[in-house]
Design a protein around this nucleic acid. Structure first.
Lengths: 229, 229
DNA sequence: TTCATACTTCGACCATAGCCGAAGCATCCG
DNA sequence: CGGATGCTTCGGCTATGGTCGAAGTATGAA
């Protein structure tokens, strides 16, 4: 009658309607902010905060702070698997939810995130760097491979100068609209600056939109993304 | 914020400590009675009854009534899989429980269950019939195949006579000690009678123990179980 | 039949925990 | 520097639901 691998503790966490709604919302794989999750569950921010910290303590969630936002995602695949299984058991109606992200098309496509490139073009660039082996994620950190360093130098990024500053070269940043990672850190900032210097893109005054020229976008695709092959 | 495949409903069912204890106890694959499960969870019979009916309604359990006992087992593999996953998430200490069944060795080996053979020899016979294709489970029912009928006739069971009675020929009966199925119904009863007639076994007076003679047990193994090959 | 056992139902108690309003930090923006 | 936004903490309200005692039903044993 005693003991227990506390399967009850975990199940009870999932068992609350509000929390279950949040978790199913996260099943899309996208990270969501506390406020969005609150709306998803139909509760106020205070209550959501309490729920989210409980699920975090329970190991169900992964949390990333981004400025004044807090992005939540499922902790790992095991969590998703269990949720999937529970949905199977609940053999009920279909589900899907989440209404997320900016509606402004230009914003979704390319925008500045603090000082680096975000939006669709930002995440595509990040993915390309990873696929090409220029960037490696080592645990929580993110680092340039020798090939990556070479690319950056050829592209006109002053790596040595950046290294002299104390700021981290590469950081992973969670994208607001795509909800995937893009490249932050001093290298990310330098790249955006370089795009502007090359005349490929320019920031729109009073907005976060980054506008690429037709020519600039073509060059971006071939010389950065296209570096893939 | 609305809708939902009610993953919360199911998870909440598992999320109660008492219910979680019962479910983990059932993870051994053995069926347990309501009283045993109550002891397992450390609660009274009334409370257990409420929990068990809820889990049954929720589709987590399979229930079989046996006289004044009610045997519970997990509804299916999916339930077990989810529980397994939850245990993984709860990544905690080991677990195991259940203290079940009779301690009397002869009783465990072979005994009468109402009027048919139960215990280890009973379940082995049942398994052999299934493996050999003599018995088939069609949904909830249990029926003899033509080959099975042939075997029964050769073994001296008056199938035609039994058929004239209204009682079901074959029924599945949950074994008390092994907690697995054995053969009940008029055929099950006829088989035990036949074992006695053949001098293979006899019931012990004032007890449920069935004693096989050394010779009888050998013949049982070769001519019934051994019919497997 | 009578007694014992297994389970269920009813009713009431009470603790847990979800919920929100209000107030407090932290961060970003102009 | 304010002012706005996102999140957290605190306090108190309330409802859900787990719990058991007592009484009821069903089955098996003597």
């Amino acid at each position: 009658m005693k003991e227990g691998p506390d399967i009850a503790r975990i199940a009870a966490l999932i068992g609350d309607p509000a929390r279950a709604n949040m978790l199913t919302a996260l099943m899309t794989g996208k990270a969501l902010t506390a406020t969005e999750l609150a709306a998803e569950a139909g509760i106020t921010g205070q209550t959501a905060s309490s729920h989210l910290s409980k699920m975090d303590d329970g190991g169900l969630l992964r949390v990333r702070k981004q400025g004044r936002h807090k992005y939540f995602s499922l902790a790992n695949d095991d969590v998703a698997t269990v949720l999937e299984g529970l949905m199977g058991l609940a053999a009920k109606t279909g589900h899907l939810r989440t209404r997320t992200g900016p509606k402004d098309a230009p914003l979704r496509k390319a925008r500045v995130c603090y000082n680096h490139l975000a939006g669709d073009m930002g995440t595509r660039m990040f993915d390309a760097f990873i696929a090409q082996g220029y960037l490696r994620t080592t645990g929580e950190a993110l680092e340039l491979s020798p090939m990556g360093e070479d690319f950056m130098r050829r592209f006109g990024v002053d790596l040595d100068g950046l290294r002299r500053a104390k700021a981290p070269l590469c950081r992973e940043c969670l994208d607001w609209s795509a909800r995937r990672s893009h490249l932050a850190g001093s290298v990310g900032r330098a790249l955006l600056t370089r795009f502007e210097d090359l005349g490929w893109a320019r920031r729109t005054a009073g907005s976060r939109v980054v506008t690429f020229t037709r020519q600039g976008e073509r060059q971006f695709l071939t010389e950065v993304i296209g570096a893939l092959r």
